[in-house]
Nucleic acid binder design. Structure first.
Length: 300
DNA sequence: CTCGATCCCTGGACGC
DNA sequence: TGCGTCCAGGGATCGA
């Protein structure tokens, strides 16, 4: 499940593998995850891939087209934006390699290789965007957690009354964090996922900022987490799943205090935490017992 | 503004 | 072994 570290890993791999290459052809399979399949089909051939970078959970492939004659729009910035969803993979392969099941896009490159997009669940997104539309699209997202300063991060969190877990997952607040790294950083900072952003002290906000950065950097160093099926641009799994402290560890013991890790739903997502290290806010505890009572009554 | 619910999609886990 | 059912996840969207 590609989050920031996994997407960073794929971006680095693709940058090394295909930057500078020109796309010569595009073959599409299923297109229901694309904003505009015709744009991808028509606009990509003839453009070269200048640079592959990560933007939140998106891969951003900046494109370039040689200016012909008086075509004024040829010079405007354009890019292919790819969200890997849960199961998306993007890799450059020799044209002769067998095409895997669920391959939905094959881009022929000028050196004979192919850039292939494989995605069984098609929860991702692919869009060709240019000019003002591209600029506006990128503007929708919040700060990059590795580039933001501590005060900027703290301000974005403390100015909101939503639960901290929801804020970390909200791409317009912080871009790139998903369920795994949200839970891992909250555990490290000893914050309960249901705590409200506005109730964090500045000290707690900065602690969370540091925890998040440390975890993201460590995960990038290990090429991300492979839970079920994540593979990078070279077809390699990541290793960071071995370092998870809470994610997916329900019932197992906390690495700090040996208390059993619990799983609750916060912001509609499974949230793993240590009930001893990460104290629940008062309101959450009250609401939780109410919900339990309500569900008992409903079941009768 | 914030919330939960719902939909999208497939494969893997699980129960019988 | 082969069914059926549930679940995972991010994000868009809708109504409360």
């Amino acid at each position: 499940m590609p989050e920031l570290p996994e997407v960073e890993t794929v971006a680095r791999g693709l940058q090394a593998a295909i930057a500078g290459r020109t796309i010569v052809s595009v073959t599409l399979g299923k297109t229901d995850f694309m904003d505009d399949p015709a744009a991808i089909q028509n606009e990509l051939p003839g453009r070269s891939i200048e640079v592959v970078e990560r933007y939140g959970k998106f891969l951003l492939m900046r494109l370039h087209r040689a200016v012909k004659g008086d075509d004024r729009r040829a010079g405007e910035p354009s890019a292919l934006l790819v969200h890997l969803g849960m199961t998306g993979m993007l890799m450059a392969q020799a044209a002769g390699e067998p095409v895997k099941k669920h391959t939905h896009v094959v881009m022929g490159l000028d050196d004979g290789r192919e850039l292939r997009y494989i995605d069984p669940r098609r929860f991702g997104r692919m869009a060709y965007l240019a000019g003002e539309i591209l600029r506006k699209e990128l503007q929708r997202f919040g700060a990059d957690p590795l580039a933001a300063t501590a005060p900027e991060f703290a301000e974005r969190i403390q100015s909101r009354r939503a639960r901290i877990k929801a804020l970390l997952l909200d791409q317009s607040v912080i871009r790139g964090v998903g369920n795994i790294y949200a839970d891992e950083s909250l555990w490290k900072a000893r914050l309960h996922p249901a705590q409200l952003g506005a109730r964090l002290t500045s000290e707690q906000a900065v602690k969370l900022y540091r925890a998040l950065q440390e975890i993201l950097r460590a995960a990038i160093d290990l090429r991300g987490s492979s839970i079920s099926d994540f593979l990078d641009a070279d077809g390699m799994p990541g290793e960071y799943q071995r370092h998870h402290r809470v994610y997916g560890r329900e019932g197992e013991r906390c690495f700090r205090c040996k208390t059993a890790i619990r799983r609750v739903i916060v912001a509609g997502r499974s949230s793993y935490y240590c009930p001893s290290c990460q104290k629940a806010p008062r309101r959450w505890r009250a609401a939780k017992s109410q919900r339990a009572a309500a569900s008992r009554n409903n079941k009768v």
